[in-house]
Design a protein around this nucleic acid. Structure first.
Length: 806
DNA sequence: AGCACGCCGACT
DNA sequence: GTCGGCGTGCTC
C-alpha cells in the first residue's frame, strides 16, 4: 500500500513557516482526511492546529523525517477546494500569511485556542509546599494560575525534578449548544416488561410507561412529557432508571432571529427595475461572470431587484451571497430577506456571539440554508454552487478589512463569481468612484434606476443652511433658526424626524479655559473623549480611560470643562428648545448592549419618539413612512479630514441621510447645516445628482493623482522611539525609490495623521502607481528585509494595498 | 511565532 | 563548578 502524505499549513503566523509542511496520514485517517480538513499536528516541540491543503503519495524529504498527523478534527472538511485556491490568491494579493486568510474564512469558533496545563506526576506530598495547595483537588492545573501567582520559579524546579510536566492542549473554541432530551426505549416489549415489574402502588409510573408504549423510540423534551402525562420529574426519573428511556444530547441552533416575520410576496417592478433584473437573470442563465453596477437613487427599489434575482437563483438550485454593511445596523434589511426566503436564510454579522456565528456558519456548511446575508466576511460563505453575489452599498469602506488579511470583499466577490461562472451585483445610490469609473469603461455593466419605486414619493427638497450667517446673526447654538422652525412644525403635525450628527470623532473633549490645554491620551496623540454616562475620559483608539480631572494638568487651573458637541449635548439642547419632544438617541453609548439597535429602531418605528438623533449608524437603511424631516447638524466635519476620499464620503453621507426623508406618501424635507455651503460636495448633494459629482470629483482626483487614476499602496512604520520610526521609514522609502520604476511616485515618509498610537510613533509612505508589474514582488522583498533585520530592532511595518483611507 | 539549544559571564 | 542571561536556528 502506498503512503499517503498531507501538505499542511500550520497555525503559526510567521514568515519562515508560511508554506505547507508534509505529514504522514495514519492508516485509520486515510479514508477520512480530505483537502480542507482541520488537523492537529506535532510541530517542533509543540502541537498545533493545521489545514490540509493537498494530499499526495510522495515527498521530497525522507519518509523517516515525516511525523504523522495526531488527530483529525472534523469529519467533514471545513474548507472547500475553492477556498484553498482563493486563499493562495488572496495571500499574494494582500501580502499576508496563508494561515491568516484561512482563519479569516472560518468563524472564530473554529480557530484553535492553545492552553497550557501543569500536570502532576507524583504524589502531592512530594511537591514543594508552595505548590501543594494547587494540586489537592486535581492533577491538572492551568499554567496561567502559576504565572499570575508568580510561582514560575517553583514550577521550574518541580519540572526539573520530574514532579510535574507541562502539557499543551489545543482546544476548539466553538461550543455547540446542546439540549437534554428524553429518548424513549426503542422496544415495545422492553417497555411492556418494565411496566409489569412496576409495583401497583406506583400509579404515576405505570401511567407514564403506558404512555411511553405509545411513543416507542420517539424523542421529547422532558417538559413535554411531564405536561402530557401530568406527572412530576421524580416519576420520569425513576422510570428512566428502569430503562424505559434515556437522556440524549441534541445539538441546537441558537435562533438569531428575534421575532417571527410574516411571509411577504413579490412587489411589482417598475419598468426600470424589470429591465435591470432581466439583464442580471440573463447573465445567470448564460453563466457569465459579469459584474453589474446597480446605480439607483435612494428608494429606487434596489433591494427588490436583489430579492427577485435571488429567487431566480434559488429556483435554479443555486445559492446566493448578499453582503450588507454591518448588518446589525439594518435589522429592517435582514427582515426583508427573511420574510421572503424564511428558513433558507443565514445571517452573519458582528453583533452575534461567537457561538451564534458558528451556528449560522454551520447552517451554510451543512447546506441547510441557501442564502446568506452578512457583513464583509460572509463573502467567504462555504457554498459550493453559488448563483449570484450581491454587495449592497458597494461604496462602503467597511468592505475593506482594516487589518490582516487586508482584503476587499468586492475583489473576493468578483473572484468567486469567476470561479462559479455567475454574476455579481454591486448596488449603490452613490457608487465609489472606482466602481463607477469601471462601469464607464465597460469593465462593469452599468444598470441605472433614476426613479423612486413607490409612485408619488418624490425626492425630498434639500436646503443648505449657511451657519456662518447664523453666527453673524448672533445664533451660536447647534441649530439654525430655519431648522428650529422646521422641527417645531413637525412636532405640531406629529410627524417624525431624524437629526444627524456627523461622525463620532466630533464628540466632547475636555479643555482648560485658561491655558487651552486639551486633555490627551497617555498612549496616543489624540484628544480624549468625554463620556458623560460614567464621568470618564476615553481614548477611542486604544481604549485608555481616566477620570475627568478637576484641575488642568498643565497649569493647575480649575477652569477646566468639557467642550464640543456629542450627541448627548445635542440631546440636552433639544430638551431646552423643545421640552415636549420625545427624543431617541442612537450612538455608541446607547447601542452597546445586544439588540439595542433593534429596540431603538422599533420604538421609533412604533411612533414612541418624535426625534431620532444619531451618528453614522442612522444614515443607512432606515425606512419609516412618517419621517418628513432630516437635519444634518454639521455637514463639514467629514469634509475636512485629511483623506482624498473626504469629499466622496461627505457626498455619500449627505445623499444617504437625505434619502431617509419622504420615502412614502408624505413629502420630505432636508436641512443641511454647513460652514462651507459653496463646496461642490455639498452643493451637488443638495441637487442629489451623482453624475455631476462624479465628473467633478474625478477631475480633482486626476489633478491630485489619486484613485481611480492611480492605484495606492500605504506603508506604515512604527517604533516606540520617534527617531527610529522616522529613520526606518526613510530607509523603506529609499529602498522603494531605488527598486521601483520612475513613474511610480513615492510620497513621504510623513508622520501619520495620528502620529502616536499605543505608545508607538507612526510614519507612513504613500505609493502611487498606474502599472507596476513588479510592485508586489518589491514589497515582498522589502518585507523580507524588515523580517530578517528591522523586526529585531522593534520596528513594525505593514503594507496596505489599495487602502480605504490614508 | 515559540521553543530548544548553546555559549558566556556571575554566583552559591 | 552551576545557574540563567539571551543570540541563533529550526519547525515536515
Amino acid at each position: 500500500m502506498t503512503v499517503k502524505i498531507a501538505e499542511v499549513i500550520v497555525d503559526v503566523a510567521a514568515y519562515p513557516v508560511d508554506r505547507p509542511f508534509d505529514y504522514l496520514i495514519p492508516v485509520e485517517m486515510q479514508e477520512l482526511i480530505e483537502c480542507g480538513s482541520r488537523v492537529r499536528v506535532p510541530f517542533g516541540p509543540r502541537s498545533v492546529l493545521g489545514f490540509v491543503v493537498s494530499i499526495k503519495n510522495e515527498t521530497d524529504l525522507s519518509i523517516a523525517k515525516l511525523k504523522p498527523i495526531t488527530k483529525l478534527l472534523d469529519i467533514e472538511p471545513v474548507l472547500t477546494s475553492e477556498m484553498l485556491t482563493l486563499a493562495k490568491w488572496l495571500k499574494h494579493e494582500t501580502i499576508c500569511y496563508e494561515i491568516d486568510v484561512l482563519q479569516a474564512m472560518l468563524p472564530s469558533a473554529l480557530r484553535a485556542k492553545y492552553e497550557k496545563f501543569v500536570s502532576l506526576q507524583v504524589n502531592v506530598e512530594q511537591l514543594s509546599f508552595l505548590l501543594q495547595p494547587y494540586f489537592t483537588k486535581t492533577k491538572k492545573v492551568n499554567y496561567k494560575i502559576f504565572e499570575k501567582d508568580q510561582l514560575l520559579h517553583e514550577l521550574k524546579i518541580a519540572i526539573k525534578q520530574n514532579q510535574v510536566v507541562i502539557e499543551n492542549v489545543v482546544k476548539q473554541q466553538g461550543n455547540i449548544k446542546e439540549v437534554r432530551k428524553v429518548k424513549i426505549n426503542d422496544s415495545r416489549e422492553a417497555l411492556q416488561s418494565i411496566y409489569e415489574n412496576i409495583s401497583n402502588r406506583a400509579k404515576k409510573q405505570k401511567l407514564l410507561v403506558e404512555w411511553m408504549m405509545n411513543h416507542v423510540d420517539e424523542v421529547f423534551e422532558p417538559k413535554e412529557i411531564l405536561d402530557e402525562v401530568n406527572c412530576s420529574d421524580a416519576v420520569l426519573h425513576s422510570v428512566m432508571e428502569l430503562g424505559a428511556a434515556e437522556f440524549i444530547h441534541e445539538e441546537v441552533f441558537r435562533d438569531v432571529f428575534t421575532k417571527d416575520v410574516k411571509k411577504t410576496d413579490f412587489l411589482d417592478l417598475t419598468e426600470e427595475q424589470a429591465g435591470a433584473l432581466k439583464q442580471v437573470i440573463n447573465a445567470m442563465e448564460q453563466k457569465v461572470p459579469e459584474t453589474f453596477l446597480l446605480h439607483g437613487i435612494t428608494g429606487s427599489g434596489k433591494t427588490e431587484i436583489y430579492l427577485q434575482a435571488i429567487e431566480h437563483c434559488l429556483n435554479d438550485g443555486k445559492e446566493a451571497i448578499v453582503l450588507v454593511p454591518e448588518i446589525s445596523l439594518t435589522p429592517q434589511m435582514t427582515e426583508r430577506f427573511r420574510s421572503r426566503f424564511g428558513e433558507q436564510v443565514a445571517v452573519m454579522h458582528s453583533g452575534l456571539s461567537v457561538g451564534e456565528k458558528y451556528d449560522e456558519w454551520r447552517k451554510i456548511h451543512e447546506g441547510r440554508v441557501k442564502v446568506v446575508v452578512g457583513a464583509r466576511s460572509a463573502v467567504f460563505a462555504p457554498f459550493e454552487n453559488v448563483g449570484i453575489l450581491i454587495i449592497d452599498e458597494e461604496h462602503e469602506s467597511t468592505y475593506k478589512q482594516e487589518d490582516t488579511p487586508r482584503y476587499h470583499a468586492r475583489d473576493v466577490a468578483v473572484w468567486r463569481s469567476k470561479y462559479h461562472q455567475c454574476p455579481v451585483i454591486l448596488g449603490s445610490a452613490t457608487p465609489s468612484l472606482e466602481s463607477f469609473a469601471r462601469a464607464k469603461k465597460n469593465v462593469y455593466k452599468l444598470l441605472t434606476l433614476k426613479n423612486r419605486a413607490v409612485s408619488h414619493s418624490l425626492l425630498p427638497e434639500v436646503q443648505i443652511v449657511d451657519m456662518r450667517e447664523e453666527l453673524k446673526n448672533g445664533n451660536r447654538s447647534m441649530f439654525s433658526e430655519k431648522l428650529v422652525e422646521a422641527i417645531r412644525v413637525r412636532l405640531e403635525k406629529k410627524e417624525q424626524m431624524v437629526l444627524f450628527l456627523n461622525r463620532r470623532g466630533y464628540s466632547s473633549f475636555v479643555m482648560c479655559r485658561d491655558c487651552g490645554t486639551v486633555v490627551q491620551c497617555e498612549n496616543c496623540d489624540i484628544s480624549l473623549t468625554y463620556h458623560r454616562s460614567n464621568e470618564k475620559l476615553k481614548c477611542h483608539y486604544c481604549g485608555f480611560e481616566q477620570w475627568v480631572p478637576t484641575t488642568c494638568p498643565e497649569c493647575q487651573s480649575d477652569h477646566i470643562r468639557y467642550f464640543g458637541t456629542g450627541t448627548q449635548k445635542v440631546e440636552e439642547e433639544i430638551a431646552k428648545l423643545f421640552p415636549e419632544a420625545r427624543v431617541l438617541r442612537m450612538d455608541v453609548d446607547t447601542t452597546k448592549t445586544k439588540g439595542s439597535h433593534e429596540q431603538i429602531l422599533e420604538m421609533f418605528g412604533d411612533g414612541k419618539a418624535d426625534i431620532l438623533l444619531g451618528t453614522q449608524m442612522i444614515a443607512k437603511g432606515l425606512d419609516f413612512p412618517n419621517i418628513t424631516l432630516v437635519g444634518v447638524l454639521s455637514a463639514d466635519t467629514s469634509l475636512h479630514l485629511p483623506d482624498f476620499r473626504s469629499a466622496e464620503k461627505t457626498f455619500q453621507l449627505l445623499t444617504q441621510v437625505s434619502g431617509r426623508a419622504g420615502r412614502h406618501s408624505l413629502p420630505g424635507e432636508v436641512f443641511i447645516q454647513t460652514y462651507t455651503p459653496e463646496h461642490y460636495a455639498i452643493e451637488l448633494a443638495k441637487v442629489q445628482q451623482y453624475e455631476p459629482f462624479y465628473e467633478r470629483e474625478m477631475w480633482t482626483r486626476h489633478q491630485a493623482g489619486y484613485p481611480p487614476y492611480y492605484y495606492l499602496a500605504l506603508i506604515q512604520i512604527s517604533h516606540e522611539d520617534v527617531l527610529m520610526a522616522s529613520e526606518y521609514a526613510g530607509k523603506a522609502a529609499d529602498y522603494l525609490r531605488s527598486n521601483l520604476s520612475f513613474n511610480v511616485s513615492i510620497i513621504g515618509p510623513t508622520a501619520s495623521s495620528i502620529s502616536r498610537l499605543q505608545n508607538r510613533y507612526r510614519y507612513q509612505c504613500l505609493i502611487k502607481y498606474k502599472v507596476e508589474p513588479n510592485l508586489i514582488d518589491t514589497f515582498i522583498q522589502l518585507i523580507k528585509i524588515y523580517r530578517s533585520d528591522w523586526i529585531k530592532k522593534g520596528i513594525q511595518l505593514s503594507v496596505d494595498l489599495n487602502p480605504s483611507s490614508i
